[in-house]
């Protein structure tokens, strides 16, 4: 659904710094774990990562210079969940977006806590809202919702409706229930008279055209 736009950036002839070239080369070397590395805009890189290799890729990127984990989040595409990792380099002032797809029915991902301690906070929220289990995350429990909740509200299957919709639905149900009650309580109407015998077919109606061989 969301493309990486690498071709567009190349076509625009964006000036690439030496660091960005180096990152692209490193990402290319990490294939097949990393695919589609590209530069979207100056100082904006993007790449797609295979689900199991995110820890190694982010460790390599941290060594290169992406020292800050800005955000780790999910986008729910129902059958799949796309994990998005956004890394920023304070020295080179460059942002990279890593996307990786995991299963939507039983979402499991590797935890980035061995690389950044602060990843725990993002992962707790992703677990709380989407139900993604991060293997290796210490203290993986709910953070924003009450502990006894069992649902994951940011999944697309969890629907919210506005108070106007709630009211409309309640009124529609009430009206339906009232109509059903009225229909049940009303006296049954007398049986309709027997229909008249069917009229004989008219004589001058041309017979139906039959699909016969030409």
């Amino acid at each position: 659904m969301t493309g990486t736009g690498g071709a567009a950036a190349a076509a625009a002839g964006a000036a690439r710094s030496a660091f960005e070239e180096r990152v692209l080369a490193e990402l290319g070397a990490m294939a097949p774990a990393v695919s589609e590395p590209a530069i979207q805009k100056p100082h904006r890189l993007i790449a797609r990562v295979k689900a199991g290799s995110i820890v190694d890729v982010s460790r390599r990127l941290k060594l290169i210079g992406f020292d800050h984990l800005s955000c780790e989040t999910c986008v729910d595409y129902e059958s799949e969940i796309e994990m998005v990792y956004l890394l920023w380099s304070y020295k080179e002032k460059c942002l990279i977006e890593l996307r990786s797809r995991i299963s939507g029915t039983e979402p499991k991902a590797a935890s980035l806590v061995p690389v950044w301690t602060g990843a725990e906070f993002h992962e707790r929220e992703a677990y709380d809202m989407f139900g993604v289990i991060f293997e290796g995350c210490p203290n993986l429990r709910r953070v924003l919702l009450p502990d006894e909740w069992t649902l994951f509200p940011f999944r697309k299957s969890f629907k919210i409706e506005s108070i106007h919709e709630k009211r409309k639905r309640a009124e529609a149900e009430k009206a339906k229930a009232a109509k059903a009650a009225a229909a049940a309580a009303a006296p049954k109407p007398p049986a309709p008279p027997a229909p008249p015998a069917p009229a004989p077919p008219a004589q001058n109606v041309p017979p139906e055209k039959e699909a016969g061989p030409k």
Binding site: G5, C71, L95
Partner: peptide
Amino acid sequence: PARAIYRRAEDPRGEGAVYIA
């Protein structure tokens, strides 16, 4: 459009950011 954007800003409290898809 069917894209995703990550926009950062210097909030008085730190790095505020919005990821909109």
